[in-house]
């Protein structure tokens, strides 16, 4: 069985990848991460087995690109030194509801919540993406949700 043309792969998964990235990094940074996600996917594509779970595969790549984005932003933010008097906006001014708060979660919980609920992957696929057990993936998503709920009530 041969792989379908990459254009078809792009057409099939672009909405899922976009949705995950908008939730993970916001609409402004989503495009850069989207381009990098499909660039990496296209490089590796000929080695992909036609019977593998390609949706979980590309969402895992997207999740890693989102993580890279957050790391790079954290690095850029570091040399600022002493904090100015005005508090940095902890939350986006736009009211995006609960998803705007997801990126404040600890990394593991954030990744699990994103892959499970923005990516709509099974706990098993989330576990494979994060390199942990299915139980651990389930726990991370659960803890993340619990924390989000507390934030909303507060």
């Amino acid at each position: 069985m041969t792989l379908p043309p990459f254009q078809r792969f792009l057409d099939t998964h672009r909405n899922d990848v976009w949705r995950l990235l908008v939730a993970a990094v916001g609409p402004d940074a989503a495009d850069d991460c989207f381009q990098e996600t499909f660039l990496s996917a296209m490089r590796a594509y000929p080695r992909l087995r036609a019977d593998s779970n390609v949706r979980a595969w590309v969402l895992t790549i997207a999740q890693r690109k989102a993580l890279d984005h957050h790391r790079a932003r954290a690095r850029r933010a570091m040399p600022v030194g002493a904090l100015p008097d005005a508090p940095a906006p902890e939350r986006p001014e736009r009211d995006d509801g609960v998803w705007a708060r997801v990126h404040e979660l600890p990394p593991k919980q954030r990744a699990a919540v994103l892959l499970r609920f923005a990516g709509d992957l099974s706990h098993r696929d989330v576990a494979a993406a994060l390199g942990c057990s299915e139980d651990a993936a389930r726990r991370s998503a659960h803890e993340g949700l619990k924390k989000l709920r507390q934030e909303l009530i507060r």
Binding site: D11, R14, N15, A23, F34, F38
Partner: peptide
């Protein structure tokens, strides 16, 4: 929000299509 569900975030399919077109072109 129920105990173990969270509805997926809203997104703009037109923006996804535009991003995909940019990718294919470059």
């Amino acid at each position: 929000m129920t105990t173990d569900r969270l509805s997926p975030p809203p997104y703009d399919p037109a923006a996804a299509a535009a991003a995909a077109a940019r990718f294919a072109a470059t």
